[in-house]
Structures are given as structure tokens and as C-alpha cells.
């Protein structure tokens, strides 16, 4: 594909992710912080988000599989995931974390398990989307083009 075609599909794809609420303006901020001196900033932060989320989701699964659920652990883990998802602009993961936290306060184990499934689902969705977006970015760079700016979203 030609560079301008790749750039166009990058913009279209990003626009669709914003429109469907997978990403919010914070992701645009990350893109703005990437420049020649730091060409891999977004990829680095997104990779950290994947590692962080996977670890937290595993911990939460273990905690919620226990007979006696330790709500303190959940109460420590969920805000971490909420924090990193909002730092990356993964809006739907963040929103699912907010609901999760409310049920944790109620100490409602069944609702917490449902919330965990919800958060996992949203995480896997946004992960897939972000990976596709990064692949597009890499194709643009490989073709010698520049990543289009996302000013309108930030």
C-alpha cells in the first residue's frame, strides 16, 4: 500500500476507535508526546499497559476464585487497573473498573465475578484494537511516512 493510503486508514481506524468509545482523548495526548526524540513512546506505554493489565487480571481471577473473597485485595487491584487504563485512554476498561469497584464495596462476590468477566472482555477488545493500530503505525514508518497527528481528539 502507498503511504498516503496507509495514513488514511490509520486516521479512519483511529476515528472509529474514538467513536466506539474504545479510546478517549488521553490516547491523543500520548500520540502528542511522541516525537523524533522518542519515536516509540506510544508502543512502550501500550506494552506496559498490556503487562500491567494481564498481571492485575490474573491476580483478580485468583482472588475471586477463593471461597472467602479477600475484598481488600480487590480494592487494591481494581483502582490500579482503573488508573492505568485511564492513563492510556482505554475508556471502556476504565468504565468497567468503576462498576467493579462499586460491587467490591458491597462485597458482592457474584457481581464482582461478573464484573471481572466484563473487564477482561473489554481489555481483550481494546488490546486487539491497539495491536492493530500499532501494526498500522509500523507499516507507515516502514513505508517512510509520518504518523498522522490526532489533534482533533485531544
Amino acid at each position: 500500500m502507498e503511504v498516503d493510503q496507509l495514513q488514511r486508514s490509520f486516521l479512519e481506524y483511529t476515528t472509529s476507535l474514538f467513536r466506539e468509545g474504545f479510546l478517549d482523548g488521553q490516547f491523543g495526548q500520548l500520540q502528542m508526546l511522541q516525537d523524533e526524540s522518542n519515536p516509540d513512546f506510544v508502543v512502550e506505554v501500550v506494552s506496559l499497559f498490556f503487562e500491567d493489565s494481564q498481571r492485575i487480571l490474573n491476580d483478580l481471577s485468583i482472588t475471586l476464585n477463593q471461597q472467602n473473597v479477600d475484598y481488600k485485595k480487590i480494592d487494591a487491584n481494581v483502582p490500579q487497573l482503573k488508573g492505568s487504563s485511564s492513563s492510556i485512554g482505554a475508556q471502556r476498561v476504565r468504565n468497567a473498573c468503576i462498576a467493579f469497584r462499586n460491587f467490591c464495596e458491597e462485597q458482592n462476590a457474584d457481581a464482582c465475578r461478573r464484573c471481572l468477566q466484563q473487564v477482561k472482555q473489554e481489555y481483550l477488545l481494546v488490546k486487539e484494537k491497539l495491536e492493530a493500530l500499532i501494526r498500522l503505525e509500523q507499516q507507515i514508518v516502514a513505508a517512510g511516512g509520518a504518523i498522522p497527528m490526532l489533534n482533533e481528539f485531544s
Binding site: L33, E44, L48, F49, G83, S87, I88
Partner: peptide, 15 residues
């Protein structure tokens, strides 16, 4: 304490 947030604030301050 969050590595993601350290990366983010570092970049914001450096820029």
C-alpha cells in the same frame, strides 16, 4: 508507584 504513570509524567516534563 505506577510505572506507566512514571513514564507519562517523565515524558510530559521532558517535553
Amino acid at each position: 508507584d505506577s510505572l506507566i504513570d512514571r513514564k507519562l509524567i517523565e515524558r510530559l516534563l521532558k517535553i
